[in-house]
Computed example of a mutant assay.
Amino acid sequence: MRLDKFVCKSTALSREGATDAIHKGAVSVNGEVVTNEKAQVHENNTVTLSGETLRPRPFRYILMNKPAGTICSNVDEVYPSLFNLIELDNTEELHIAGRLDADTTGLVLITDDGHWSFNITTPTKHCEKVYRVGLSRPLRDGVARQFEQGIQLQGENQLTLPAKLEIIGPQDVYLTITEGKFHQVKRMFSAVGNRVISLHRERIGNVALDVEVGHWRFLTDDEVASLATSSRHF
């Protein structure tokens, strides 16, 4: 973790305030003054501010059912930030592990633990994401097989990783993917001559959506642990 982030996570200081304290020589790591806010510190390091030992707040792991018309950003833009729905202190420390578009609904995971979220978002960890997809027209025969083999997306050099398609109805499917390219689900269906008209994420790894729209809860310890070791099941 960067030193300025460690100080923020251990005090009431803003990022600017933490950086100022570091530059002024008020912060020491293992007894040595460190004035570079980008310096990396680890769990076993002793960090002090003006002689007081700092202890970072515990990491937080949150599940939310994202409403349509909100964005996965820490600040409002064209649409309001979903963080407006979370009544917690220090929400500026939180980030979203796998963003959804403004018009996409469903499961988002929110945390301040960057190592944990890496396991969810990096394709090499093969963490499953399950979406319910509404389509503009019935699927052609053979699309499920195409998705299993990988789809060539416009502007991409490589095929998508194998994906699982489960037919619910002529224009209603479940799609399971293990990566998260830009607008990937929409682009995959566009590549096979269809168009996504509704998109809702229902599961990430072994964690399923179980709260009402706009609501959130903390993950259980078992859920946190399961996502730290997620792997592909198909």
Rank of each mutant, 00 (worst) to 15 (best):
I86H: 04
Y131F: 07
T35S: 07
G205P: 00
N119W: 03
R99P: 08
L94F: 10
G106T: 08
E223F: 08
G98Q: 08
L54Y: 00
S28P: 00
L3F: 11
K38E: 12
I120Y: 00
D101F: 02
S117V: 05
K186V: 06
D89M: 11
A225D: 14
L139C: 11
D141T: 10
E212G: 09
V7G: 01
G31L: 04
V192R: 02
T11Q: 09
V211K: 11
L88H: 11
E179L: 07
N44R: 13
F182P: 05
P56Q: 09
V108M: 04
L3Y: 05
A144V: 09
D4S: 00
R232Y: 14
G193H: 10
D222S: 15
G193S: 14
F118T: 11
D20L: 14
A102M: 13
R201T: 05
C127L: 10
E37R: 06
Q152N: 13
S73G: 08
V213A: 09
L227F: 11
F182E: 12
G31C: 08
V75A: 09
V192F: 04
D4N: 01
V29P: 01
V211F: 11
P58L: 15
F147T: 06
V192P: 00
E212C: 07
S230H: 07
I62L: 15
K129M: 04
P58S: 15
R15W: 04
G180S: 09
T70V: 13
S50N: 15
L159R: 07
P162Y: 05
R15L: 06
R140Q: 15
G98D: 09
R217S: 06
D103K: 01
Q184I: 05
E179A: 08
P56W: 02
S190C: 09
G193A: 12
V213D: 14
S231Q: 13
G69Y: 02
L63W: 12
G31H: 05
L85R: 00
G155W: 09
P67D: 09
E32G: 07
N84M: 10
P162W: 03
H233N: 10
F83R: 03
V224E: 05
G69H: 02
Y174F: 15
P170K: 08
G193R: 10
E223P: 03
G142A: 13
E16P: 03
N84S: 14
F218E: 15
P80H: 09
R60G: 08
T48E: 07
A39M: 09
L109T: 01
E156T: 05
Q171C: 13
T111G: 06
P123F: 06
V29W: 03
E156P: 02
C72L: 06
V192C: 03
N45D: 14
E93H: 05
E179C: 12
K164M: 09
N119R: 07
N45T: 07
G169A: 15
A191R: 00
T220W: 07
H126G: 04
F189A: 01
H215V: 05
R99H: 13
A18M: 10
M188S: 11
P56E: 08
I62W: 06
F147K: 05
E16R: 15
P67A: 10
R201I: 04
